[in-house]
């Protein structure tokens, strides 16, 4: 019983890693997770007419390094408003190719003014 628990713990610890930086991703062989922010110096590029499954943006990791990211899925709604971005994928040349992107958006009503009646 205890042996089984320890065995599971050891194998499970292999599934866990820390958030990487673009620097780590460049060395790493496998997939990594990077947390950072959308780099607003560059536009978010999504042209569904050409390919609805790809969108590109630039992201700054926690070390302050900015890299181009390509994600293989449609652009999530309100992506431009995100406060924090977590991408999963690997480095290919100088671009981070992500299979998944998670965004954290400001909570629904934060800083929102009270909505006033439009008819008065």
């Amino acid at each position: 019983m205890v042996v089984a628990a320890i065995a599971i713990f050891i194998t499970a610890s292999g599934d866990v890693s820390t958030y990487a930086s673009f620097g780590d991703a460049a060395i790493s062989q496998g997939k990594v997770k990077i947390v950072g922010e959308l780099d607003r110096e560059f536009p978010v590029h999504y042209d569904p007419d050409t390919d609805p499954n790809i969108f590109r943006f630039h992201m700054v990791d926690n070390n302050g390094e900015s890299k181009k990211v390509i994600v293989g899925m449609p652009k999530p709604q309100d992506f431009e408003k995100s406060e924090q971005v977590v991408v999963t994928g690997k480095m290919k040349d100088d671009t981070f190719v992500a299979s998944e992107v998670l965004t954290k958006c400001p909570s629904k009503y934060k800083d929102e003014e009270l909505s006033l009646r439009s008819d008065s």
């Binding site: 569904p48 007419d49 390919d51 609805p52 499954n53 790809i54 390509i70 293989g72 899925m73 449609p74 190719v97 299979s99």
Partner: peptide, 16 residues
């Protein structure tokens, strides 16, 4: 759809 941009096994799941 153009292939090659993403990894080959990840064909797009969305169509216009």
């Amino acid at each position: 759809a153009m292939k090659g941009l993403m990894e080959d096994d990840e064909l797009g799941k969305v169509v216009g």
